[in-house]
């Protein structure tokens, strides 16, 4: 069974990476933000957050931070994911589920192409 004792090995690996990371990569960090007000949580934001984290962790993606925020202001369109790429305009994805979250990582974060089919449509 996994325990706190296992953290040491992961920590040592990560500390080495943090040291080797230069300032330039810090400035290039992409932020992926999941809306987690009550409406977001009820609509399925938690599995979306965890899928994004799993994708970034399992695929060893280094320049991405996944975080939460409260209300994004569009209850009916939750779960909502916002992607902030430095130097580019914010992209807002709506009605996101775990599958869409994976596609956002593949196409947008790694491939650099916005997933236009998940943007706010006429319903906004």
């Amino acid at each position: 069974m996994k325990s706190i004792a296992d953290i040491k090995a992961i920590r040592e690996k990560m500390q080495a990476q943090i040291i080797s990371r230069d300032n330039e990569s810090e400035a290039n960090e992409i932020r992926v933000v999941v809306g987690m007000a009550t409406c977001g949580i009820a609509a399925g934001a938690r599995p979306v957050f965890n899928e994004l984290v799993d994708q970034v962790a399992n695929r060893g993606i280094k320049h991405v931070k996944v975080t939460r925020t409260g209300c994004i202001g569009m209850c009916k369109l939750e779960p909502i994911v916002e992607v902030f790429v430095p130097g580019q305009e914010k992209v807002t994805y709506v009605h996101v589920d775990a599958d869409k979250a994976k596609k956002i990582i593949d196409q947008h974060i790694l491939g650099g192409k916005v997933c236009t089919e998940y943007l706010v449509g006429d319903e906004a």
């Binding site: 996994k2 992961i10 990560m14 962790a57 993606i61 975080t67």
Partner: peptide
């Protein structure tokens, strides 16, 4: 809150 740590 690093992704690797959250996943672990």
């Amino acid at each position: 809150d690093s992704p690797e740590i959250i996943a672990f």
